[in-house]
């Protein structure tokens, strides 16, 4: 008891200050996530939504085998695949592909917003066509290009791309930035029932996840989910905010997001100068919940300038 009193007496305000400083230094929420809910190699295939948009000849072919993909989880971002486009003839007009020798289980529309980054687009298409064909999925790449000189509206371009993809009955939408490249082959471009954040181990974030609610970069969700949450907000102009807004929309409709294991979900980000964040983004974000049902896919207004079916992609040129 006496000893206890002595110890108590020795504590002065400096000790409290040191302790506060130490606690602040090791406070966990200032840092990246140590652990987050993720799907391991073995569980991925069972969780995928097996649905296609094409009624191909199902009878005469067997289903494609995907086990090797997850088993090997090969590192794919290396020389022949990232530097040149292999077997270009396999790719159909409009940047579409499905495997001919087996019956694929997944149909995916890949929607990429784009403006003025011709060099990155070239690298992206070259690598992604090599990468996605290896995964034996049916996919189509939509490049949604903003034609006007207003601030880049990433969210609205996603909505536009999604509306085109929904017309072609794609059951799964993947929304990705043009500067992101998946590194591992196991990161299959297909949807899980739960909305999926695909780029959870991004190299420019040191392969860590900064916070649980991060839902930007590359995301995958089923068309039903996308329609249910009313898509992205159309209001976010300039850089930032729209990814947090769509996460809020998902939470609002009681969806829980899922991620793949960090050893699978590795992405690399191509070099480019950082955009200046839009100053109004917090304001829109804070009032975002008021517009969940009114602002989005159902209030989408845009002007189509051109819809071109090119060799490697479908180009949707729009004014937002």
């Amino acid at each position: 008891m006496r000893l206890k009193n002595q110890i108590l007496l020795q504590i002065n305000k400096y000790h409290v200050l040191y302790l506060a400083l130490f606690l602040y230094f090791i406070w966990p929420s200032r840092f990246a996530m140590v652990y987050y809910e993720n799907l391991k190699h073995d569980d991925i295939f069972d969780n995928l939504l097996k649905k296609t948009s094409r009624n191909s000849n199902i009878i005469d072919k067997i289903n494609c085998n995907y086990y090797e993909l997850f088993e090997k989880n090969q590192f794919f971002y290396k020389d022949p695949f990232s530097s040149e486009l292999l077997n270009e003839a396999e790719i159909k007009q409009g940047g579409e592909y499905w495997p001919d020798n087996c019956n694929t289980l997944f149909s995916v529309a890949i929607i990429v917003p784009y403006r003025n980054r011709a060099n990155q687009l070239k690298l992206f298409l070259r690598y992604m066509h090599n990468y996605l064909r290896k995964q034996q999925i049916h996919y189509k790449i939509f490049i949604v290009e903003q034609a006007d000189s207003k601030a880049f509206n990433r969210a609205k371009l996603f909505n536009i791309g999604a509306s085109y993809a929904l017309r072609e009955n794609f059951p799964c939408l993947i929304m990705q930035d043009v500067d992101l490249m998946p590194l591992k082959l196991g990161n299959i471009y297909a949807c899980t029932e739960r909305p999926r954040h695909m780029s959870s181990a991004l190299d420019s974030f040191r392969f860590n996840l900064p916070y649980y609610g991060l839902f930007g970069g590359a995301i995958a969700m089923t068309s039903d989910t996308f329609i249910h949450i009313n898509g992205f907000s159309n209001m976010f102009q300039g850089w930032g905010g729209e990814d947090d807004d769509i996460y809020a929309r998902l939470v609002n409709k009681k969806y829980k997001i899922i991620r793949f294991n960090p050893s699978i979900a590795q992405y690399t980000m191509l070099k480019h100068s950082k955009e200046i964040p839009s100053p109004e983004r917090y304001q829109f974000l804070r009032s975002g919940y008021l517009r969940f049902d009114t602002d989005g896919l159902n209030s989408l207004v845009f002007r189509e300038i051109g819809l071109k079916s090119l060799d490697l992609y479908t180009n949707i040129l729009v004014e937002v």
Binding site: F22, Y24, F25, I26, F31, A32, R206, N208, P210
Partner: peptide
Amino acid sequence: FEFTLPLLELLPQENFIFV
């Protein structure tokens, strides 16, 4: 380290080792 580095990219373990 504690105030200007983008700490959201670092793991708490790395900070703990540093401290």
